[in-house]
Design a protein around this nucleic acid. Structure first.
Length: 325
DNA sequence: AATGCGGGGAC
DNA sequence: GTCCCAGCATT
């Protein structure tokens, strides 16, 4: 959970996770949907799938015991250099480094190395690690980076390494490590098909196993080439997406909602929800969820925004219909 | 070595 | 708005 995610964000997820999956067999035997549902909102959902696969891997290949060897740890799905080093040093007292984003920044400044490579970091961190208390050492470096040697305006006056920090001596600490130029984030517009039945339930289908939001549930969608499409084109695309996903719809759309914007790390998405009316049962592997409370399955944040907007619109229309039959 | 992969909080 | 978070898998 902590991979690329702040401790403060993780804590409530971690507690709920341990309550639902108290030990390794509980996780290894769980349904994939249940695992994803527990992870919902944390992002980088492959971590959840890897953790699930990792539990099964350890159960089968290691008799349910986490291996102590660094190479064996790295063989577990979802466990890379950092996680293997952290577990080996903190849990098992092995004198191995654990280089996360914080440690990378600390070492880059300590040696005034603007572009530290993975191999350089591993070598440096390996030489420094305290063989007697490797876990404490690694965590101390991480905490130093998180609290004092911060990305911007580091607190060098309070740093125990200030006198031996090459970047501090050179005055380059704010420039280390160097930031790579970020590419522009592309903007993509989607027509979103919200097919609603008479009870206010909407059709969702599972997303493909790979790519963005893999394995999560979502409304059918279609990429719109024209960023400012006219209404007939939107409705046509939404209806097509619904049909592709196995949801049958009536001819007349209910209406087009205000756009929902959602920023992913490398994609700015604009969703245009189109409310459509269900025509009988659906085919395929879709499911119908209540728009008011779409619980019980893993929906990405953006989909929940869309669901909330769609429910508000649906409820308003039904109320009007009751008032003016 | 570069890229795709979420969501949120701090500034 | 930008930056970055106790990174990993894939290419």
């Amino acid at each position: 959970m902590l991979q690329q995610t702040r401790v403060k964000t993780v804590i409530p997820y971690y507690r709920a996770w341990l309550k639902r999956f108290p030990d390794l067999p509980a996780l290894a035997d769980a349904e994939p949907d249940e695992v994803l549902a527990q992870w919902e909102g944390l992002g980088y959902y492959r971590r959840a799938r890897s953790l699930h696969a990792g539990a099964a891997f350890v159960a089968e290949r290691h008799g349910g015991r986490i291996p102590r060897d660094l190479a064996e740890l790295k063989g577990i799905p979802g466990v890379g250099d950092y996680t293997a080093g952290a577990v080996a040093s903190i849990a098992f007292g092995r004198p191995v480094p654990a280089v996360d984003g914080n440690v990378r920044r600390v070492l880059s400044r300590l040696y005034d190395e603007p572009t530290p490579t993975a191999s350089w970091l591993r070598e440096r961190a390996g030489l420094l690690v305290d063989p007697d208390r490797p876990g404490d050492w690694n965590q101390a470096l991480m905490d130093l980076g998180a609290t004092i040697c911060t990305p911007r305006s580091p607190g060098c006056d309070a740093c125990p390494l200030t006198s031996v920090c090459a970047a501090r001596v050179a005055g380059t600490q704010e420039l280390r490590p160097s930031r790579s130029a970020r590419r522009a984030v592309p903007a993509v517009t989607f027509a979103v098909s919200v097919v609603v039945d008479r009870w206010g339930r909407a059709f969702v289908r599972r997303r493909p196993d790979k790519g963005l939001l893999a394995g999560l549930w979502a409304f059918p969608e279609a990429v719109i080439g024209d960023p400012t499409p006219d209404e007939p084109a939107l409705v046509r695309q939404a209806r097509h997406a619904a049909k592709e996903a196995g949801a049958r719809t009536r001819e007349r759309p209910r209406w087009i909602l205000d756009v929902v914007r959602h920023r992913f790390t490398h994609l700015m998405a604009t969703y245009v929800p189109v409310l459509l009316t269900a025509a009988g049962a659906s085919a395929g592997d879709g499911r119908w969820v209540p728009l008011e409370r779409p619980t019980g399955l893993a929906l990405p944040r953006a989909q929940r925004k869309i669901a909330a907007a769609a429910w508000a619109a649906f409820e308003t229309k039904e109320t009007d219909a009751d008032a003016n039959p």
